[in-house]
Amino acid sequence: MIPFDFEYYRPESISEAVQLFIELDQAGKNPVYFSGGTEIITLGRINVLYTNAVIDIKGIPECQVMDYHEGNLYLGSCCTLVDIEEKNLFPLLTATSKEVADHTARTKITLGGNICANLFYREAVLPFLLADSQVIIAGPNGYRTEYINQVFNQTLQLERGEFLVQLITEPDKIEAPSINIKRRRQWTTGYPLVTVAGLKLGEEIRVAISGLCPYPFRSQKMEYYINSQDFSQRDRIEKALGDVDGNVLNDTEGSDKYRLFILRNTMLDIVSTLEGERA
């Protein structure tokens, strides 16, 4: 039950959506783009989020794309996580997605909604960070296509009025060996203590992490240590962990110290699994 009213718009094109945003913004209605909407509904209910107008972008065809085009995979921001899992066009994304919330909730949660969420886990971004995917962003100044690693810094860096339309991923990244491990406070439900996604491109291992800090990230420095072949696996992971910045979460899911303990073992599993495939 949301304790306030808002206007609801469902544009059918990107330009309509953007135009609408500009108008509603100028009218002081503090508009938000609405895709799966689960966060707007749940945070709205507890007064953490407020808006006078939502712009539902699910009616925009570009946001619903889920297909290969000229060799690359295009995924629309309004594809639901369950649809993505069922089509399974990007196995690492499927693996990561399946650990988000629960199955029924994922029939509503969308890819773009998860990546652009207020809630800081945003686990669906991890595979794209690893795959050096590109994002297509639409906004008042038209479209822009950017590498996600350029525009995702803790959150997707969107200008006012912009929204995520699609993510583009190259096939070699999609086919590369990969793994996703989510570790929780207890058993198999709940938010992550840490979620680590790993991808092996040629001989290079890439890792991206959610849950450790109040944002998901991929660290080139950590990867540098992980891939420096002069040391043992354990030493490489120790060095990589040494590079985690000071912003480790200490919250109801777990303490910072425990998170680092869990991360160490999880990294060990990720690296040994991915390196095992070389052997």
Binding site: Q186, W187, T188, T189, G190, Y191, D251, T252
Partner: peptide, 16 residues
């Protein structure tokens, strides 16, 4: 109380 919701206060769920 920092966990007054079922997503942070979690009873046993199916499969556990």
């Amino acid at each position: 109380v920092l966990n007054p919701q079922l997503r942070t206060y979690r009873p046993v769920q199916f499969g556990e």
